[in-house]
Protein backbone atom coordinates (compact mmCIF):
# COMPACT_ATOMS: atom_id res chain seq x y z
CA UNK A 1 0.00 0.00 0.00
CA UNK A 2 3.01 2.20 -0.43
CA UNK A 3 1.41 4.44 -2.99
CA UNK A 4 2.35 8.04 -2.48
CA UNK A 5 1.30 11.15 -4.30
CA UNK A 6 4.45 11.29 -6.40
CA UNK A 7 4.08 7.75 -7.73
CA UNK A 8 0.43 8.39 -8.48
CA UNK A 9 1.19 11.49 -10.55
CA UNK A 10 4.14 9.81 -12.27
CA UNK A 11 2.03 6.86 -13.32
CA UNK A 12 -0.80 9.11 -14.54
CA UNK A 13 1.70 11.11 -16.59
CA UNK A 14 3.16 7.92 -18.08
CA UNK A 15 -0.30 6.69 -19.12
CA UNK A 16 -1.06 10.06 -20.69
CA UNK A 17 2.19 10.02 -22.64
CA UNK A 18 1.78 6.47 -23.90
CA UNK A 19 -1.81 7.22 -24.85
CA UNK A 20 -0.74 10.19 -26.94
CA UNK A 21 2.01 8.14 -28.54
CA UNK A 22 -0.46 5.38 -29.39
CA UNK A 23 -2.98 7.71 -30.97
CA UNK A 24 -0.20 9.28 -33.01
CA UNK A 25 0.83 5.91 -34.43
CA UNK A 26 -2.43 4.04 -34.92
CA UNK A 27 -4.42 6.01 -37.53
CA UNK A 28 -1.74 5.52 -40.19
CA UNK A 29 -1.68 1.77 -39.77
CA UNK A 30 -5.27 0.97 -39.00
CA UNK A 31 -8.36 2.29 -40.68
CA UNK A 32 -11.21 2.54 -38.19
CA UNK A 33 -13.87 1.46 -40.66
CA UNK A 34 -14.67 -0.39 -43.86
CA UNK A 35 -15.05 1.14 -47.34
CA UNK A 36 -18.47 2.78 -47.53
CA UNK A 37 -18.81 4.90 -50.67
CA UNK A 38 -22.07 6.55 -51.72
CA UNK A 39 -21.20 7.60 -55.26
CA UNK A 40 -23.51 9.69 -57.45
CA UNK A 41 -22.62 7.26 -60.25
CA UNK A 42 -23.73 4.17 -58.37
CA UNK A 43 -25.58 1.54 -60.36
CA UNK A 44 -28.82 -0.27 -59.65
CA UNK A 45 -31.41 -2.60 -61.12
CA UNK A 46 -35.07 -1.84 -61.74
CA UNK A 47 -37.20 -4.98 -61.23
CA UNK A 48 -40.56 -4.75 -62.95
CA UNK A 49 -42.59 -7.57 -61.39
CA UNK A 50 -45.47 -6.95 -63.82
CA UNK A 51 -43.17 -8.11 -66.63
CA UNK A 52 -41.52 -11.09 -64.87
CA UNK A 53 -42.80 -14.46 -66.15
CA UNK A 54 -41.28 -16.56 -63.34
CA UNK A 55 -38.98 -18.62 -65.58
CA UNK A 56 -36.23 -18.65 -62.93
CA UNK A 57 -33.48 -18.45 -65.55
CA UNK A 58 -31.94 -15.70 -63.40
CA UNK A 59 -31.43 -18.31 -60.67
CA UNK A 60 -29.66 -20.62 -63.12
CA UNK A 61 -27.44 -17.86 -64.49
CA UNK A 62 -26.59 -16.61 -60.98
CA UNK A 63 -25.44 -20.09 -59.94
CA UNK A 64 -23.25 -20.30 -63.02
CA UNK A 65 -21.68 -16.92 -62.37
CA UNK A 66 -20.82 -17.83 -58.78
CA UNK A 67 -19.53 -21.42 -59.26
CA UNK A 68 -22.56 -22.92 -57.55
CA UNK A 69 -23.80 -26.29 -58.76
CA UNK A 70 -26.47 -25.78 -61.47
CA UNK A 71 -29.32 -28.13 -62.19
CA UNK A 72 -30.45 -28.98 -65.69
CA UNK A 73 -31.54 -25.74 -67.40
CA UNK A 74 -34.97 -27.09 -68.35
CA UNK A 75 -35.91 -28.17 -64.82
CA UNK A 76 -36.09 -24.59 -63.53
CA UNK A 77 -39.51 -23.82 -64.97
CA UNK A 78 -41.60 -25.89 -62.57
CA UNK A 79 -44.60 -24.38 -60.91
CA UNK A 80 -44.10 -26.71 -57.91
CA UNK A 81 -41.24 -24.51 -56.83
CA UNK A 82 -43.66 -21.70 -56.14
CA UNK A 83 -45.64 -23.75 -53.63
CA UNK A 84 -43.57 -22.34 -50.85
CA UNK A 85 -41.73 -19.06 -50.47
CA UNK A 86 -37.98 -19.55 -50.54
CA UNK A 87 -35.24 -17.29 -49.21
CA UNK A 88 -31.80 -16.62 -50.72
CA UNK A 89 -29.20 -19.14 -49.52
CA UNK A 90 -25.74 -20.47 -50.34
CA UNK A 91 -27.20 -22.58 -53.20
CA UNK A 92 -29.44 -19.81 -54.53
CA UNK A 93 -28.13 -16.29 -54.05
CA UNK A 94 -31.32 -15.17 -55.75
CA UNK A 95 -34.76 -16.80 -55.67
CA UNK A 96 -38.02 -16.14 -57.52
CA UNK A 97 -41.23 -16.47 -55.49
CA UNK A 98 -44.90 -16.15 -56.39
CA UNK A 99 -47.05 -13.61 -54.52
CA UNK A 100 -50.66 -12.42 -54.39
CA UNK A 101 -51.72 -15.94 -55.39
CA UNK A 102 -55.46 -15.25 -54.97
CA UNK A 103 -55.84 -12.65 -57.70
CA UNK A 104 -53.43 -11.45 -60.37
CA UNK A 105 -50.38 -13.27 -59.02
CA UNK A 106 -46.92 -11.88 -59.66
CA UNK A 107 -43.50 -13.44 -59.50
CA UNK A 108 -40.67 -11.47 -57.91
CA UNK A 109 -36.94 -12.07 -57.88
CA UNK A 110 -35.35 -11.56 -54.47
CA UNK A 111 -31.71 -11.02 -53.58
CA UNK A 112 -29.58 -8.54 -51.62
CA UNK A 113 -31.01 -5.03 -52.13
CA UNK A 114 -27.56 -3.36 -51.96
CA UNK A 115 -28.64 -0.59 -49.60
CA UNK A 116 -27.25 2.92 -49.90
CA UNK A 117 -26.65 2.87 -46.14
CA UNK A 118 -26.18 -0.84 -45.46
CA UNK A 119 -26.80 -2.19 -41.97
CA UNK A 120 -24.37 -5.06 -42.60
CA UNK A 121 -21.50 -2.66 -43.39
CA UNK A 122 -22.25 -0.72 -40.22
CA UNK A 123 -22.67 -3.80 -38.04
CA UNK A 124 -19.83 -6.10 -39.15
CA UNK A 125 -17.36 -6.43 -36.26
CA UNK A 126 -14.33 -6.68 -38.54
CA UNK A 127 -15.54 -4.55 -41.47
CA UNK A 128 -15.83 -7.56 -43.81
CA UNK A 129 -18.69 -5.85 -45.67
CA UNK A 130 -18.12 -2.82 -47.85
CA UNK A 131 -20.20 -0.58 -50.12
CA UNK A 132 -18.31 -0.12 -53.37
CA UNK A 133 -18.33 2.87 -55.69
CA UNK A 134 -20.55 1.09 -58.25
CA UNK A 135 -23.18 0.44 -55.60
CA UNK A 136 -22.37 -3.22 -54.80
CA UNK A 137 -22.32 -4.32 -51.18
CA UNK A 138 -19.75 -7.10 -51.01
CA UNK A 139 -18.34 -9.46 -48.37
CA UNK A 140 -14.68 -10.30 -47.73
CA UNK A 141 -14.06 -13.93 -46.77
CA UNK A 142 -10.56 -13.14 -45.49
CA UNK A 143 -11.92 -10.97 -42.68
CA UNK A 144 -15.22 -12.62 -41.64
CA UNK A 145 -15.23 -14.39 -38.27
CA UNK A 146 -18.71 -15.89 -38.73
CA UNK A 147 -20.43 -14.00 -35.89
CA UNK A 148 -23.63 -13.51 -37.95
CA UNK A 149 -24.29 -9.98 -36.62
CA UNK A 150 -24.89 -8.94 -40.27
CA UNK A 151 -27.85 -11.34 -40.31
CA UNK A 152 -29.24 -9.77 -37.13
CA UNK A 153 -28.80 -6.31 -38.66
CA UNK A 154 -30.09 -6.81 -42.23
CA UNK A 155 -33.65 -5.41 -42.50
CA UNK A 156 -34.39 -7.64 -45.55
CA UNK A 157 -33.09 -10.82 -43.87
CA UNK A 158 -30.76 -11.54 -46.79
CA UNK A 159 -27.35 -12.81 -45.61
CA UNK A 160 -27.27 -16.58 -45.22
CA UNK A 161 -24.80 -18.69 -43.23
CA UNK A 162 -23.46 -22.17 -43.94
CA UNK A 163 -24.52 -23.84 -40.68
CA UNK A 164 -23.53 -27.29 -41.93
CA UNK A 165 -19.83 -26.46 -42.36
CA UNK A 166 -17.39 -27.04 -39.49
CA UNK A 167 -14.56 -25.24 -41.26
CA UNK A 168 -14.71 -21.90 -43.06
CA UNK A 169 -18.47 -21.49 -43.19
CA UNK A 170 -19.32 -18.56 -45.44
CA UNK A 171 -21.81 -15.72 -45.25
CA UNK A 172 -23.45 -15.84 -48.66
CA UNK A 173 -25.45 -13.20 -50.47
CA UNK A 174 -25.78 -11.59 -53.92
CA UNK A 175 -22.63 -9.57 -54.70
CA UNK A 176 -24.24 -7.68 -57.62
CA UNK A 177 -21.86 -9.71 -59.85
CA UNK A 178 -19.01 -7.48 -58.66
CA UNK A 179 -16.41 -9.45 -60.65
CA UNK A 180 -18.46 -9.30 -63.86
CA UNK A 181 -19.41 -5.62 -63.70
CA UNK A 182 -15.74 -4.78 -63.04
CA UNK A 183 -15.01 -6.15 -66.52
CA UNK A 184 -17.89 -4.19 -68.05
CA UNK A 185 -20.24 -7.19 -68.22
CA UNK A 186 -23.86 -7.12 -67.07
CA UNK A 187 -24.92 -8.91 -63.89
CA UNK A 188 -25.67 -12.52 -64.88
CA UNK A 189 -29.37 -12.31 -64.00
CA UNK A 190 -29.90 -9.10 -65.98
CA UNK A 191 -28.08 -10.57 -68.96
CA UNK A 192 -30.18 -13.74 -69.16
CA UNK A 193 -33.63 -12.30 -68.39
CA UNK A 194 -35.64 -13.09 -71.56
CA UNK A 195 -38.37 -10.47 -70.99
CA UNK A 196 -36.31 -7.52 -69.74
CA UNK A 197 -37.96 -7.57 -66.34
CA UNK A 198 -34.57 -6.43 -65.04
CA UNK A 199 -33.02 -3.13 -66.13
CA UNK A 200 -29.42 -2.37 -65.15
CA UNK A 201 -28.36 1.27 -65.03
CA UNK A 202 -27.43 4.28 -62.95
CA UNK A 203 -29.71 4.37 -59.93
CA UNK A 204 -30.89 7.94 -60.54
CA UNK A 205 -31.77 7.13 -64.17
CA UNK A 206 -33.68 4.04 -63.06
CA UNK A 207 -35.82 6.13 -60.70
CA UNK A 208 -36.74 8.44 -63.63
CA UNK A 209 -37.54 5.41 -65.80
CA UNK A 210 -39.70 3.90 -63.06
CA UNK A 211 -41.63 7.17 -62.61
CA UNK A 212 -42.20 7.28 -66.37
CA UNK A 213 -43.63 3.76 -66.38
CA UNK A 214 -45.99 4.53 -63.52
CA UNK A 215 -47.13 7.74 -65.25
CA UNK A 216 -47.74 6.04 -68.59
CA UNK A 217 -49.59 3.05 -67.10
CA UNK A 218 -51.16 4.22 -63.86
CA UNK A 219 -53.71 1.36 -63.90
CA UNK A 220 -50.92 -1.24 -64.17
CA UNK A 221 -48.71 -0.04 -61.31
CA UNK A 222 -49.10 0.69 -57.65
CA UNK A 223 -47.80 4.26 -57.38
CA UNK A 224 -44.68 3.53 -55.37
CA UNK A 225 -41.09 2.61 -56.24
CA UNK A 226 -40.04 0.18 -53.51
CA UNK A 227 -36.42 0.91 -52.59
CA UNK A 228 -36.37 4.57 -53.57
CA UNK A 229 -36.65 5.71 -49.96
CA UNK A 230 -36.97 2.54 -47.86
CA UNK A 231 -34.16 2.26 -45.28
CA UNK A 232 -32.56 5.31 -46.86
CA UNK A 233 -32.67 3.89 -50.40
CA UNK A 234 -31.53 0.67 -52.08
CA UNK A 235 -29.73 -0.03 -55.36
CA UNK A 236 -32.40 -2.54 -56.40
CA UNK A 237 -35.77 -0.89 -57.08
CA UNK A 238 -39.09 -2.68 -57.47
CA UNK A 239 -42.29 -1.87 -59.37
CA UNK A 240 -45.46 -3.90 -58.93
CA UNK A 241 -49.24 -3.89 -59.23
CA UNK A 242 -49.80 -3.70 -55.46
CA UNK A 243 -48.14 -2.63 -52.23
CA UNK A 244 -45.42 -5.27 -51.74
CA UNK A 245 -45.66 -5.16 -47.97
CA UNK A 246 -49.24 -6.49 -48.00
CA UNK A 247 -48.07 -10.00 -49.02
CA UNK A 248 -44.71 -9.84 -47.21
CA UNK A 249 -42.71 -9.63 -50.44
CA UNK A 250 -40.83 -7.06 -48.38
CA UNK A 251 -41.25 -6.18 -44.72
CA UNK A 252 -42.76 -2.81 -43.77
CA UNK A 253 -39.78 -0.51 -43.36
CA UNK A 254 -39.38 3.18 -42.60
CA UNK A 255 -37.28 5.65 -44.55
CA UNK A 256 -34.58 6.08 -41.92
CA UNK A 257 -31.25 4.51 -42.87
CA UNK A 258 -30.90 0.87 -41.84
CA UNK A 259 -28.18 1.39 -39.21
CA UNK A 260 -30.61 3.90 -37.64
CA UNK A 261 -29.65 5.49 -34.36
CA UNK A 262 -27.18 2.68 -33.65
CA UNK A 263 -24.24 4.58 -35.14
CA UNK A 264 -25.14 7.88 -33.48
CA UNK A 265 -25.31 6.19 -30.08
CA UNK A 266 -22.05 4.42 -30.72
CA UNK A 267 -20.31 7.62 -31.78
CA UNK A 268 -21.92 9.61 -28.96
CA UNK A 269 -20.48 7.25 -26.37
CA UNK A 270 -17.06 7.48 -27.93
CA UNK A 271 -16.90 11.05 -29.24
CA UNK A 272 -13.12 11.50 -29.59
CA UNK A 273 -12.77 9.21 -26.56
CA UNK A 274 -13.86 12.16 -24.39
CA UNK A 275 -16.58 10.33 -22.39
CA UNK A 276 -14.40 7.32 -21.45
CA UNK A 277 -11.44 9.53 -20.52
CA UNK A 278 -13.73 11.82 -18.52
CA UNK A 279 -15.16 8.85 -16.58
CA UNK A 280 -11.61 7.62 -15.96
CA UNK A 281 -10.54 11.02 -14.63
CA UNK A 282 -13.67 11.30 -12.48
CA UNK A 283 -13.13 7.87 -10.92
CA UNK A 284 -9.43 8.65 -10.37
CA UNK A 285 -10.46 11.84 -8.60
CA UNK A 286 -12.94 10.04 -6.34
CA UNK A 287 -10.33 7.41 -5.56
CA UNK A 288 -7.76 10.05 -4.61
CA UNK A 289 -10.15 12.13 -2.51
CA UNK A 290 -11.67 9.22 -0.61
CA UNK A 291 -8.42 7.39 0.06
CA UNK A 292 -8.18 8.44 3.72
CA UNK A 293 -11.86 8.15 4.43
CA UNK A 294 -11.89 5.06 6.63
CA UNK A 295 -8.49 5.53 8.25
CA UNK A 296 -9.46 9.04 9.38
CA UNK A 297 -12.59 7.65 10.98
CA UNK A 298 -10.53 5.07 12.84
CA UNK A 299 -8.09 7.67 14.17
CA UNK A 300 -10.82 9.80 15.72
Amino acid sequence: MSQNRRDFLKTIAAIGASGTALSAVTPKKLKAGPTNILSDERMGVLVDTTVCIGCRKCEWACQGAHDIEQKDFDTYQHDDTFNKDRRPSAQNLTVVNKYFEDDNPITAKLQCMHCDHPACVSACIVGAFSKQENGSVIWDTDKCIGCRYCMVACPFQVPSFEYDKALNPKITKCDFCFDRTKEGKLPACVEICPVEALTYGKREDLILEARKRIKNNPEKYHNHIFGEHEVGGTAWLYLGPKDFTTDNVFPKLGNNTAPGVSESIQHGLFAYFVPPVAVYALLGGIMWLSKDRDSKKENK
Binding site: G33, V121, S122, I125, I145, G146, F161, I265, H267
Partner: peptide, 23 residues
Protein backbone atom coordinates in the same frame (compact mmCIF):
# COMPACT_ATOMS: atom_id res chain seq x y z
CA UNK B 1 -20.70 -19.50 -31.34
CA UNK B 2 -18.81 -17.78 -34.12
CA UNK B 3 -18.50 -19.83 -37.29
CA UNK B 4 -14.78 -19.24 -37.69
CA UNK B 5 -13.49 -19.54 -34.13
CA UNK B 6 -9.86 -19.53 -35.31
CA UNK B 7 -10.33 -15.91 -36.49
CA UNK B 8 -11.42 -14.65 -33.06
CA UNK B 9 -8.36 -12.37 -32.99
CA UNK B 10 -9.40 -10.52 -36.17
CA UNK B 11 -11.12 -7.61 -34.38
CA UNK B 12 -7.74 -6.73 -32.82
CA UNK B 13 -6.38 -5.65 -36.20
CA UNK B 14 -9.52 -5.24 -38.32
CA UNK B 15 -11.45 -2.33 -36.91
CA UNK B 16 -14.96 -1.05 -37.51
CA UNK B 17 -15.65 1.91 -35.25
CA UNK B 18 -19.32 2.00 -36.33
CA UNK B 19 -20.01 -1.47 -34.99
CA UNK B 20 -21.41 -1.88 -31.48
CA UNK B 21 -20.19 -5.48 -31.57
CA UNK B 22 -16.64 -4.30 -32.28
CA UNK B 23 -16.81 -2.06 -29.22
Amino acid sequence: DIGRWYYIWHPLIMWNGNSALFE
